[in-house]
Amino acid sequence: MNATSIPAPVRRSVTVKAPQHKAFEVFTSGFGRWWPASHSIGSSPLRSAVIEPREGGRWYEAGEDGSECEWGEVLAWEPPSRVLLAWRIGMDWKYDPDLHTEVEVRFVSVTSDSTRVELEHRLLENFGGEAEAARGTFDSEGGWVGLLRNYAEMVEKTIV
């Protein structure tokens, strides 16, 4: 396996005009209030998305038909400064309990009513063919198809 082919983590940040505790509360307990419906992963249209507010809590979405689609779980719960989530949505766009990628979100107080929210999605190498080579196993791998399909749908929506 060629080390240079390991993808760097995705890092995104945004500074919001709200205090640290509020930013944490909206991001986690209020997850379903802001998560874009277009970012649904389940087969049914998104009704709500939930981060259960505790270590070991579930991270999932509920569809309009009542179905639930697991995304992962809460690995670390440190209000108001940090939450660490396991993202276990594989390449086939399905929940895979053996897939391990992490989404870490840090809430850094800038002023009394301004917070920088830093998101890092890491261990992306576990998604793909390189992980197969590294682990010599194929069982937990899907492929690129789901993401590309989903990407295609997003692109189409953007164009239309």
Binding site: V14, V16, K17, A18, P19, K22, A23, V26, F27, G30, R33, W34, D113, V117
Partner: peptide, 9 residues
Amino acid sequence: FQKQVEQEW
């Protein structure tokens, strides 16, 4: 997220 949290605040 930013839109939501700023609106709520």
